[in-house]
Design a protein around this nucleic acid. Structure first.
Lengths: 356, 356
DNA sequence: ACCCTGTTTGCATAGGTATTCAAAATTGTT
DNA sequence: AACAATTTTGAATACCTATGCAAACAGGGT
């Protein structure tokens, strides 16, 4: 069915040179005279020739493809991450094979599918992999980089944001600002991201000898944040005035849900009655109606360093393992009462003064 | 640097069979006895062998990879589309090479990069391609499917939603419900999606001999919707009561921006003073605070048919060209006053009655 | 024991390019 | 003009798997 493809031999014949010459014409820095290169390109143009990257990969043992395994593109944290990875890899001349649905369980089943294609490297976001699989990739010589996940003593690179540290800082902010009844709305409890954020928050509260925060379980979704807030603010707590006065939400989506519940359904004022802080600095946080105070992870920097490191490792497998841990930034908007002195890096995102 | 790879020959030697036997063991339906297959798998297991998809692609002339060119993953309409494409292609045993930033201008430059890799087919979302490029792909025998874009007489498949029809229906709804001063907030004006929605809306208004809608230009973003609303509702229009009483926004993001402007900044009531309708049925439309009435494009169905058709065409290049045009669905929420009789397919999305 | 049928097997080759090596062509030097 | 030094060229081979073909094999029936 496939029409006969035009190969480097066809071009060679047309141009009156050898196949090697054609190959060299397309290899930057190879030894060809300008004259033959021109002949080759002219012939290629005429025949509609284009080098076959598959054949090239086979012989050069370099596919110029990387695998990108993403946990969940629907969570609004990830599309920008995906876009950044695409852009950065493109700048490095790497194509991207995308794989979705890589939760921890799946990754081990997924990886063979990507290894088949002889990718030069694999980036895995927000999932871990078994140590056997890590060892196997190592044996194949395929470098792995974990993004937003860390595996203590495996031979894999990782670049993460310091969730624990950020969450500890949130606790400090709440406490120092004088909040007395803290609460936490969790993400899916079995994810390491949630565990880190929760651990950081609770451990710092404990260190400062404050009462343990109330907690409600969510699953990262808007609706779960909404529901969780309603669980934290029961009717009896509302009437007794014992309801939380500071809620830390494990991500923005739940933060927005909580905000809607607190303001629209419970008729409390934010931040006067309750402070709310989210995590991720998703686009919708800056919408006029929300202006959610939140934590921004330095994704641009993280992706850039993940890609840069991947390329470096492809070129030098002996390169030392990196384990980057980036610090986050507090984005100050209008949903939290904060202390005079803010104990972590922050920026204020002013309310845009739109013409009108 | 690369350690020596383990090939089918190594496995053959280990298992005491020929290389062909190894190949056949991995080819479903090939002629191998159960006994040799077992020997092969045992040896493969022992050596850590895995077939090389690159070499396989080279000889079988089938890469089992498709190219997916997406215009813009950051626009919240697309992540679900991407996820659906990934899932559907995976079910068909196809890997996906992703390419971003495929706006109309770029596509022609981008395609050669994907064709290099001998993909079995290419899906292009929300962008057109030049007829030369279409002809070139045709010559190579690489099928193209356009998603959400249509090119009249090119040999490419397309599956679209009927934006014109949906927009005409919006006009009908507004008019029949008794709105008198319509308005339109546009997306980027040079995109075909915007052109269709605008054209449908305006043409139907004209047919029904109503005054032409006011219009403000946006760029699909939340902020642009906010700003556009402020332009439509100037101070003088507000004081004279001449402000629009029905706003159709070319997508949801702008609809939400407009909604925030209208309610929070202009202090008008929705839908009592103003009706607002969006487009896409993005997640945030259903948030309690917004409950935006909008149009849902049947993306699941569209993606499924795009993929199904792609696979069919790969297997039979002579298959007739399809040009699917799917009808959209009105999602009735709380931001628009609607007539008794709704003239298009619709569903009501009830306010969830959350426990609390 | 034989032949006939149907299944398995291995050999050899193809698929399209990159690269080594030695030969050929070019350039520069005196 | 002759030679050395350098650049350019082509032939041959390797990368790893799938598959057509003919040979080997197993099984059934007489």
């Amino acid at each position: 069915m496939g029409r006969p493809r035009v190969t480097s031999f066809d071009v060679a014949r047309e141009a009156g040179v050898s196949q090697s010459a054609v190959s060299r014409a397309y290899t930057p820095g190879a030894s060809v005279s300008a004259k033959t290169r021109d002949k080759v390109f002219a012939a290629a143009q005429k025949l509609g020739y284009q080098p076959n990257a598959i054949a090239r990969s086979l012989i050069s043992r370099r596919s110029n493809m990387v695998g990108l395994v993403m946990a969940d593109v629907v969570n609004p944290f990830y599309p920008p991450v995906l876009e950044l990875f695409m852009r950065n890899f493109r700048e490095q001349g790497q194509r991207v094979m995308l794989f979705l649905g890589g939760h921890n369980q799946d990754v081990d089943e997924l990886l063979p599918q990507v290894l088949e294609y002889q990718v030069d490297g694999i980036v895995i976001t927000s999932s871990t992999l078994s140590s056997e699989m890590a060892a196997y990739c190592n044996k194949l010589g395929t470098p792995i980089t974990l993004f937003n996940r860390y595996v203590p003593n495996a031979r894999v690179d990782s670049v993460c944001s310091d969730n624990i540290d950020a969450a500890r800082n949130i606790a400090d902010l709440f406490i120092t600002a004088g909040h007395k009844r803290l609460a936490y709305i969790s993400g899916q409890v079995n994810t390491s991201t949630n565990q880190d954020r929760q651990k950081g928050f609770f451990s710092r509260v404990e260190e400062r000898r404050q009462p343990m925060p109330a907690m409600a379980e969510g699953d990262w979704s808007y609706q779960s944040g909404f529901d969780a807030a309603l669980k934290l603010f029961t009717a009896e707590k509302l009437s007794s005035g014992e309801y939380p006065d500071a809620v830390f939400c494990a991500n923005d989506l739940m933060g927005l849900g909580a905000l809607d519940a607190i303001r629209c359904k419970l008729n409390l004022r934010v931040p006067d009655d309750v402070s709310v802080i989210g995590f991720d600095d998703t686009d919708s946080c800056s919408w006029h109606n929300y202006r959610l105070t939140t934590i921004r992870t330095p994704v641009e920097k993280m992706v850039a360093s993940a890609v840069e490191n991947m390329i470096a490792r492809i070129n030098n497998p002996e390169k030392e393992i990196i384990a980057a841990l980036e610090q986050s930034l507090l984005i100050v908007r209008d949903t939290a009462r904060l202390p005079e002195q803010i104990s972590m890096p922050f920026i204020k995102d002013p309310k845009p003064d739109t013409a009108g």
